[in-house]
Simulated scan of single mutants.
Amino acid sequence: MRSTLIVAGLLALTPALAYADGDVAAGRKLALQCQACHGMDGIAKIPEAANLAGQSEVYLTSALNAYKSGERKNDMMSTIAPTLSDADIANAAAYYSAIEITAKVPPK
């Protein structure tokens, strides 16, 4: 029973590991193209853009792939995402997910 739980746990991690192959330095170079909307720091510079700093690499990869395929729609991202290679997507996700952020709970 214990070995079954360990195997199940490892299988649950497999999708996340598949996304963990991006290059942060290459992603930083790619982010130069993204900075007008998302900023080099991953904090949105325009109201229509998402904050990317500290987001999960799995989430960012999934979102970019959804924009690329047309499953997810946004005027700007639907134009940009189809031009990204799988490596570009992995690298951008690695870069933005590597940005450390802190959160503070507001006082009562």
Score class of each variant (00 low, 15 high):
61 T>D: 13
70 G>A: 03
53 A>D: 05
46 I>T: 14
38 H>E: 05
77 M>V: 08
39 G>I: 01
72 R>S: 03
58 V>A: 14
51 N>Q: 10
25 A>P: 08
29 K>S: 14
80 I>P: 03
58 V>C: 12
38 H>G: 08
48 E>I: 07
73 K>L: 06
66 A>E: 09
53 A>L: 12
45 K>Q: 15
45 K>F: 09
62 S>L: 08
75 D>S: 09
64 L>Q: 01
73 K>G: 02
65 N>T: 11
72 R>Y: 05
46 I>S: 12
49 A>D: 11
44 A>K: 13
26 A>G: 13
37 C>E: 04
68 K>L: 06
33 Q>P: 06
41 D>T: 10
80 I>G: 03
41 D>I: 07
38 H>D: 09
41 D>C: 06
62 S>D: 03
25 A>N: 12
25 A>S: 13
34 C>W: 08
31 A>F: 07
49 A>R: 03
49 A>H: 04
52 L>G: 00
49 A>K: 00
61 T>M: 04
64 L>G: 02
44 A>H: 10
72 R>N: 02
36 A>L: 14
55 Q>N: 12
64 L>Y: 01
45 K>P: 10
66 A>D: 13
38 H>R: 10
40 M>V: 09
38 H>L: 03
49 A>W: 00
70 G>T: 01
52 L>A: 02
75 D>M: 05
60 L>Q: 07
67 Y>A: 00
56 S>D: 12
77 M>E: 06
67 Y>H: 01
28 R>S: 14
27 G>Q: 08
71 E>M: 14
59 Y>G: 10
58 V>G: 09
42 G>E: 01
68 K>D: 01
51 N>F: 10
38 H>N: 08
64 L>A: 07
61 T>V: 08
31 A>C: 06
26 A>R: 15
